[in-house]
Every structure is written in C-alpha cells, then in structure tokens.
Design a protein around this nucleic acid. Structure first.
Length: 853
RNA sequence: GCCGAAGUGGUGGAAUGGUAGACACGAAGGUCUCAAAAACCUUUGAUCAUAAAAGGUCAUGUGGGUUCGACUCCCACCUUCGGCACCA
C-alpha cells in the first residue's frame, strides 16, 4: 500500500467535490437545516481563527448532511468598513479594488480547508445589490419614525474621524483602533432600538438555545429598571421666573427610602442648572459664579475622565426643595456623579442606603438618615420606635445598608418590609399627583452615521426649496425635519424607493480631513430634488457597517433578488438559522442588532420570527504559540496556509477540533499537529487489516455502536475533542485485532468523515464504495447492539475501590448474589478482615459498596 | 463593586453523584537501522513499602458541610479569564 500523501488526494477530491457540486444548496426540498457562521471581514489573509470558527461549523454541517438534512451552509463577506479605507489610503489603492482582491485570495484559502460551505448564495455587502436594501430598510425605519436625526453628545474617535455607537466603545477606547474616545456634539442619524428594548429582553427560559452568558450580558446592557419619577417642589420658587415647572423631577428605584432623603443632586447638564445660569432661577451673584465655574469645569472633563474618577465633586446651589412626603426642606446640589443621560438627570440622595450618596454626604458633611434596617435587626428589635438607630449603627458599623429590610422612621410606612413599602409609597405618590411610575433603560438609540467613505450611503436628500415652501416651520422644528448645512436651512427629503440604490461614487477623496469624503464629489452630491425639482444635496455620510451584518442571513436565501430585501416565502421556509457559530465579542453588538432587525422585520410583516437563530455557539480563541493573542506586531500569527502545506488540511482540521474544547482559549503549537497527522496515518494503515471474509459474528458491535453513539452526541453538543478521542480509542482497539471487518472500517470512516473529509473520501473510494462518503450515510446507532450479557462491577469498601467482579447480566438486578460473588474474592476477604458489613449499596451494572463498621 | 465562566499530572484536557487523570502532547527507555525518526513497543500524578510482584497512603484552588460514596451537590473564601460599571 502506498504511503498516506495528503497533498495529492486533497487536490483530487476538492476538484471532484466542486465539479459534482455535492455541497450545492438546494432550498426547494424540505427537511432544511440552516448552518451559519459569522461571515468574514475581507482583510486579506484568512486567520487561523477563521478556520477555527468555520472548521467547527463545517464538522457540524457535514454530520447533519450525512444524516439526511438539506443543509444550507452559505458564505459571504462583510466587505464595508474602515480597514479597507485605511489600507487603501496607506497603499494608494481604491477600497473597492483592495476589497475585491482580498475576497479572491480569501476564497482560495477557504477552499483549501475543505469546507462544505458554498459561495453559490454569496453576499458581498459592498455591492449595490446588497446595500440597496440597507437603504430600503433605512427608509422603512424612517417611515415608522424609527430613524431620526439629532444632535447628540457622541463618542468620537479622532483617529478614525468618525462617530461610534455605544456598543463600539471598549473601556473608553475605539473598538477598531483602540485610541481613546472623546465626547463631541455631532448631528447624526439614529435608529430607535430603544422602542424594541422591552422585546429584546431575554425571558428566564427562552424558546431558543443561546448561551446564558450572552443572554445575561444583553439583558444587563438593555438595563431595564422599574422605578418612579417623583416631583420635589422648589421651595420659594414663586420669586423666580422659572416657568417650566416649579418642581424638580427625580428618578429612583428605591422610593421606599424617600424618608431618608437628605439632599437632591442635579447633573451639570440638567435644565434647572441651565435655568440658573440663564438667571431664570435666581441665586446670589457669588453662587452664580461658583456654579458656572463648576459646570464649565465638569463639562471639560471627558466622559472617560468623569467615569474613571470615583472622587466626588459637587456644589451647593443654595436652592431648596420640599420632600413631597415629609415636607422637609432639602438642599439641592449639582454633581457630576449624576449622569444626564439616565433617568431624569436628577436624583434624590439617600446616603444611608446608597454608597455613592454616602461618599458624597461624607465629603460635604451632609446628614445621613437611616430608614431601613436589615431584617435580622429590624425583627429582633420588634417595636422599632424604641430602637436607637445611632447605637445600632455604631454597634454594627452600619453606615450603609443597601439591601432589603424593615422600614423605620417612615411614619405610616414604618415596620413594613421594604418591598411592601415601595408598593405603598408608590401608590400614595401617584394618588396625590406627586410622582408617577417609570421604567428606564440603559440601552440608548443606535447611532448609525459614520463620517467616512467605505459604507452604505444614507438615502436622504436635503432641499432648500422644499424647506422654503414649508408652511408650519415652527412646529416642524421639534420633529427635526430639517438641517442646517453651511448656514442654510434645508428640508429632509428621503430618496424615493424607486431611485434606490444610491450608489457609492467611486471617485472621492477619502483621506480623512474631518470633512466627509462623499462631500468631495460634488457631481454626486448635487442632485435634482424628487419633490420640488429644485436643487438638492445628498447626505454625505455612510451607515455603520453593523447594519450590513444585521440581516445578511436573510439575504443569503436569494442574494440576487431584485424586488425585495429577501425572499419572504423562502424565508418562511428556511429561517430561522438553526445554528449560528461566532465570537463572544459580538454579544453586545452584532447579535443584539440582528435580533433588533428581526423584530423590526416582524413589524413590517415580512417575517413572523421573534428570533433569527435557534441556537448560538460561541467559539473560543486560538492564541499564538507564546500563549498571547495573535497579532502582527507580536509576530506570533499562524498562517493556515503554512500549516496545510506541512500537514495537509485533514491533519490541521483534526488538530483544530482536538486540541481544546471548541469554546476554550489556548495556544496553537504547530509541532503538536504531528500527533493528529500520526492518527490519520494509523487510520490509513488500518486499511491493510481489512479482512473481507471475517465472519459477521466477529465484528465487535459493542465498540462500534458505543463509538457511533458517542461521536454523534459529541458533534451535536459541539464537543469535537471528545468525539475524536472516542475515535482514537476505537482505532487503538481495532489496531490490536488481527483483522478488521469491512463493516467496521466503513463505519469508522463515516464517523471520521465530517472531521477529516479528504482522507475518508479516498479510503472510501479505495474500498470500492460509491462516491461520495459525504452524502446521506450517517451510521445508525443500535441500542440493542450495546447490550451485553456480562458486566464489570467495581467492589468498593467504604467507598474505596478494592477489586472488581464480572457478573452475568441475568443476576445484575440481584444485589445478594452480587454480594456473595464479591465476598468470594480473596482480596476483598482480606480487606474486610474481621470487621462486620453494616450496609451494602449496590448500583446495578456499576459498583457495589460495602460499608464496614 | 456587579454579572458570567472557570480552577484537575510537566502540558492540552477527560469524567456532572459511582474504580479521577480517558484521549493526546511532551519526556524517558527500548526495537528496527550503517545511521536516523515525524515509525513501532514499553513506562510516565505524588509518595511509602518490597529482591520482585501484589499492595498501602495522599491527591481535582482553600476551609467546612451533605452522602455509603463528592472533581461533580450545598455554604464560606481565594485566584484567573471575559463582560458591565457613579444606571440612582
């Protein structure tokens, strides 16, 4: 027999698979199975990490195909984005050419790994036939009031010269270039994802199978909290011209602690602060100066600085409000530990029950008033009237108690558990018009404008003529249906659907100058207004590329479709995605946005899905040989091409699946791939042991069916490493035998086929079997076959293994017989000695434990 | 600080209440060979004991607990990784 030579046979089979289209997608048949892996950004070189993601998905898809499913396993490219633009600037190539070149190269690399995914439904997001539908989605969002334009203090990356969404900020830095983010007032487009906040929250037991870590992180990011807005009347406000309201609204989730309020805090951006600075609310001249200094000082701090420093700063306004329940006069402070973007931008401070308020109170010597005691103290004290709070605080060092407990010092609510008090105080405040219940979210609307070139143009025009004809300007101002560009007011005019796509012009100056690159092509920018026929200008910004990846899995179904974003009836049949492989880094960005789009599509009635993917699998991370994250600067990047040249694709695939659990993090050590290579060599050599005349009675059905069961289960549970070790065990076992039946060998090859597709195809062919091994042939597991008539029972004494007995299965239920057999063993007799057995625990088929006195 | 995941030989890891260390990598010794190894065979958690074998004891981050029996379940703590974080 010739030696195992991966290179030749891999070339041969790869060609035949393509020629005979054995992996072609057929969406007409039933019994579909949609396998999806996150599509790649065409950065030029396929990283070993891509192989890890796609290799895992491929093993899974291959098994499903062999089980007879109509597997849909498409691939494409997430082709818009900044790196293309940056690389293009650096090398003086156009981003389009750079991108398409990379796609060509990466496709070849994809082929070398022997993937069963196809490009016959490929999506390339930078092509007009794709991004046209981004624009269509934008227009639909706008029709429904979910796309709006607003000036907003936003995350700005100086290096990338663009705005970033909150999800794109990683501990204060840009997710792409990792330079610090600054806050800048920028007018831009938003998608109102907050309208879907409630729908995006994961229930306790969702119908789809997504990792708990992902669900928890998304829920935390959405950050729903139920509480109240409570009105605190401004004391003596009649002297002021303050006309908006004569009370300050605060947001709290702990209205039960309202008797413990000792001051109010406004964020520096709060409108009451603005009114003070505008002298609508009067304070002394000296105060005004102090306040104005404090506010401008804290505005200068970046958000990052403000969040980093836990050291509290603030200033007393001299104003006072009334506690709506107690009538107490309460001082109003300004401090930047209160965030303007959350709740009402103002809080009631309860230092006894909130650590941040306590820090502040201690720094500025403000009073602390305890109104909640932990249950154990509150209950033991019985009548709380007699408790000296001061002495308890001293004894228990209880400056701060943030948990639930028993109310004290709270008039009619005293002695109630906090939960009840929260409810009752809530009702009371609502009834007397002193507040209302409110739910807030941490999730903010999605900022989608990017001031760069390589993205989807926003399908919006700005028209001066239309604005001039507009009658009711004053009202429309609120709706922000206009913009001011170069000092000129212009109406917002959506591009009509029939004019889509708005194509991205090829000729622009995309060097980052702060001016959007699209504005440098004036021919593209100036167009006729579709409404009034006058002169109009295009929006010069592009969409966040996360929009591209939010719905590509719908587009895969029919990427050339011209009259709809996706084929609705096909989607009803093929969607949802059955299993989605990807990285944990997309927990708060991509997968959340995709869920949002799916729910939005549902409101458009083009899908009835609530979730786009039934199951989500997060893959792990392949580190460099030095145990560090792979990066060009560290020089520890493993190029999959080199590995394939050395070992062949099969050995690399086996090692990839075997060297750590799929969700693990660990280093790629090239030398160790030899181990996987040797395994394949042994599989190859086993061929020589096939004895066609071996009697069927000699086939070891037990090992065979155990392995079928184990491999099937493990691949289904994405535990490729243990699937391979089961195969190795079986191989070691078969190797010890003098001869192996053809049946066993065939079964072995079938089970190995998803992991090592080339060598198994070759050996399958050598056996004279019909092409191809990768079609519907997954071995059936028979539970009958693993029934034995003997069991090995471990004999334990006091829980420690001391020997074993082999019993026939007809007595396996009879603990007395098993015991008597066990007691005949010399070793056991010795171990027991003169001691008495006081108890016997028998687990049929596994152990018998003798408990001695 | 909060949420999530994890902690097992020299290394990657296996075992989710029933004989801990499967399967590999590495290492050591041997075989074949003029020589070699990426081939083949043997050994390989620590420790005690023995001429040898059988054998004993200890071991799954730490300390408690539940159980006939715990890597696995419960309580407390420590450490590492990932995410979030002045969100009221």
């Amino acid at each position: 027999m010739i030696k195992y030579q991966p290179k030749e046979l891999e070339v041969k089979w790869r060609k035949r698979w393509i020629d005979e289209k054995i992996y072609a997608s057929d969406l007409t048949k039933n019994n579909k199975f949609y396998v999806l892996a996150e599509f790649a950004y065409p950065s030029g070189d396929l990283h070993i990490g891509h192989w890890f993601t796609w290799g895992g998905a491929d093993i899974y898809a291959r098994m499903r195909r062999m089980q007879g499913y109509q597997v849909f396993f498409p691939n494409g490219f997430d082709a818009f984005g900044l790196p293309a633009e940056n690389a293009a600037i650096k090398r003086n190539i156009h981003p389009f050419d750079w991108t398409m070149d990379n796609i060509r190269r990466m496709k070849e690399q994809f082929f070398s790994m022997g993937g069963s995914f196809t490009f016959d439904h490929q999506v390339i997001t930078c092509k007009p036939e794709y991004y046209k539908w981004n624009q269509w989605i934008f227009l639909k969002m706008r029709e429904r009031g979910l796309a709006y334009r607003e000036k907003y203090l936003s995350n700005w990356c100086e290096t990338c010269q663009t705005v970033l969404a909150n999800e794109g900020v990683e501990s204060g830095t840009c997710w792409r270039c990792h330079n610090p983010i600054v806050q800048k007032d920028v007018e831009q487009w938003f998608f109102k994802i907050t309208d879907f906040a409630e729908r995006l929250i994961w229930p306790e037991n969702p119908k789809v199978d997504w990792p708990k870590a992902v669900r928890d992180a998304q829920n935390a990011w959405i950050g729903k909290s139920k509480g109240m807005v409570i009105y605190f009347p401004l004391f003596g406000s009649k002297d002021n011209e303050f006309d908006k309201q004569d009370y300050i609204e605060i947001f709290t989730t702990r209205q039960d602690t309202i008797y413990g309020v000792t001051f109010l805090v406004l964020s520096p951006e709060h409108y009451v602060v603005t009114e003070i600075l505008n002298k609508k609310i009067k304070v002394s001249k000296a105060k005004l100066k102090e306040i104005s200094e404090y506010v401008s000082k804290s505005r200068k701090k970046s958000e990052l600085q403000r969040k980093e420093s836990k050291d509290k700063t603030g200033i007393d306004t001299g104003l006072e409000v009334l506690n709506p329940l107690t009538g107490e006069e309460i001082p109003v402070w300004i401090a930047d530990y209160v965030l303007s973007g959350y709740g009402t931008g103002a809080i009631m401070a309860v230092p006894a029950h909130d650590s941040r308020d306590l820090d502040f109170a201690q720094k500025f010597h403000l009073p602390v008033k305890t109104v909640v005691l932990p249950f154990e103290i509150g209950i033991s004290g019985q009548s709380s009237g007699s408790i000296s709070v001061k002495s308890i605080r001293k004894e228990r060092k209880l400056d701060l108690y943030e948990g639930e407990g028993i109310m004290i010092n709270s008039e009619g609510f005293t002695d109630l558990p906090t939960e009840d008090a929260r409810e009752k105080i809530s009702q009371y405040l609502v009834k007397h018009n002193l507040g209302q219940e409110k739910t807030t979210f941490h999730l903010h609307d999605w900022s989608i404008s990017r001031q760069r070139y390589w993205g989807t143009p926003i399908p919006i025009l700005y028209c001066k003529g239309c604005w001039n004809k507009f009658e009711d300007k004053k009202n429309k101002l609120q709706g922000r249906d206009y913009i001011v560009r170069d000092g000129v007011e212009m109406a917002i005019v959506p591009v009509p659907e029939k004019d889509l796509p708005v194509e991205l012009p090829y000729d622009v100056d995309y060097t980052p100058t702060g001016k959007p690159p699209l504005a440098t092509n004036s021919k593209w920018m100036h167009v006729k207004c579709p409404v009034c026929g006058g002169e109009a200008q295009r929006d010069t910004e592009t969409m966040d590329t996360f929009i591209d990846s939010s719905w590509y899995f719908f587009r895969y179904l029919d990427p050339s479709l011209d009259n709809s974003a996706f084929d609705i009836s096909l989607a009803a049949k093929i969607m949802p995605v059955d299993i989605y492989f990807g990285g944990a880094e997309h927990t708060l960005g991509h997968t959340l946005y995709s869920r949002f789009f799916t729910k939005f599509f549902k409101t458009l009635d083009i899908t009835d899905l609530d979730e786009f993917a039934r199951r989500r699998i997060n893959h792990g991370i392949v580190l460099g040989p030095d145990n560090q994250k792979m990066s060009k600067s560290r020089g520890n990047v493993i190029n999959p091409d080199d590995e394939v040249k050395k070992f062949g694709a099969d050995a690399v695939r086996v090692y990839m699946a075997f060297f750590m659990p799929y969700d693990g993090t660990g280093p790629w050590v090239s030398e160790r791939v030899w181990g996987s290579y040797r395994f394949l060599e042994r599989v190859w050599q086993l061929y020589e042991k096939i004895n066609l005349h071996i009697s069927s009675a000699k086939i070891d059905l037990l090992m065979m069916h155990k392995t079928i069961s184990k491999v099937t289960k493990d691949i289904n549970n994405i535990k490729f490493n243990t699937a391979i070790s089961a195969l190795m065990e079986w191989l070691n076992y078969l190797n010890q035998k003098d001869a192996v039946s053809k049946e066993e060998y065939k079964t072995f090859l079938l089970l190995l086929a998803p992991i090592a597709p080339f060598i198994t195809e070759e050996l399958w062919n050598m056996l004279g079997e019909k092409f191809s091994i990768h079609l519907k042939r997954w071995p059936e597991f028979s539970s009958e076959a693993i029934k034995t008539n003997e069991s090995k029972i471990a004999v334990l004494i006091n829980g420690k293994p001391r020997g074993e007995v082999i019993i026939s299965d007809n007595i396996s239920e009879d603990d007395k017989k098993v015991l008597s057999i066990a007691l005949e063993i010399e070793k056991i007799k010795e171990a027991i000695g003169k001691r008495k057995i006081i108890r016997t625990v028998y687990v049929p088929g596994k152990i018998i434990n003798l408990v001695l006195e």
